[in-house]
Amino acid sequence: MEIPNVADKWTSGVNEVTIGATKDKGGSRQKTITVGGSKCIPFMDFEGNPGHKPVIAMDVYDIPPDDWTETLTRPFADVINDPAQWAKKCVEQYGADLICLKLDGIHPDKGNKSAEDAVKTVKSILAAVGVPLIIWGCEHDEKDNEVMPKVSQAARGENCLLGIVSQDNYKTLTATCLADGHSIITMAPVDINIGKQINILVSEMDFPLNRIVMFQSTGALGYGLEYSYSIQERERLAALTGDKMMSMPVICDVGHEAWRSKEAKSNDNDVPQWGPREERGPMWETITATSLLQSGVDIIRMNHPRSVAAVKKCIDRLY
């Protein structure tokens, strides 16, 4: 029996966004990363060009995270106090495609570090690794508006991906990124309508659409993954049918969210029936990532080297 061809035809696709700038483009990166470009539903390459492979950004913090379990800190034990060395280890040993520097330390409740400290950290990472950099503020609007412009200026020309901007706080960072040649992450917490709105607002400041990456906030497996999934799926369908304000590549924060779950971080003694944390922690992160990949994700922020390796293998086999 002949199997009917049920492939859909799509008229548009996800924008391509390039992160990082090499020497000839005014930066100092050894390579750039381009994401997006898909003209089909994820992994359905018989419907169109699947675009660029999803990439993994490994998180590096400017202060040692105080909520990480021993399973998560051990692979970074020798570098956790030195963001530059931490980034280097992620790239050289654990195969990170890019680094996501999370500036938790500038948050007024988590150290209240200064803009100068943040600039120093950014510069040290740019010097230590050749991959493109994502720089993520502390999500405290006032402090981010004070620190991120200085960070942006310090990394001028490197075409970093800076975030995040929201409907209520986007003007300062958008203007800064525009001036310093960086790309930007727009955020709407699990709300596709606000997600589109923030993209419109940023684009109305003449920010180029091909320098925007969307973040819908991420739910880990068992903690709202399906909400992120369905929004990202709908965004991809909107992109494929020509919605210019929904055609940006998508980033999700898998590492941080997965490792907050009790299933990932509980001690072995407390839940012996769940098996060893050394296995289940990375597994929780891996499953969260591979599930969300199917909804249409372009950049995945991750933490544990074993999860990173497993998800990279999955991506390589499916693409």
């Binding site: 589109k196 210019k244 304000m245």
Partner: peptide, 14 residues
């Protein structure tokens, strides 16, 4: 047929 946003007119007019 399109995703709603508060500025949907602006978005669709483009």
């Amino acid at each position: 047929q399109h995703v709603y946003s508060d500025s949907y007119l602006t978005a669709c007019r483009k």
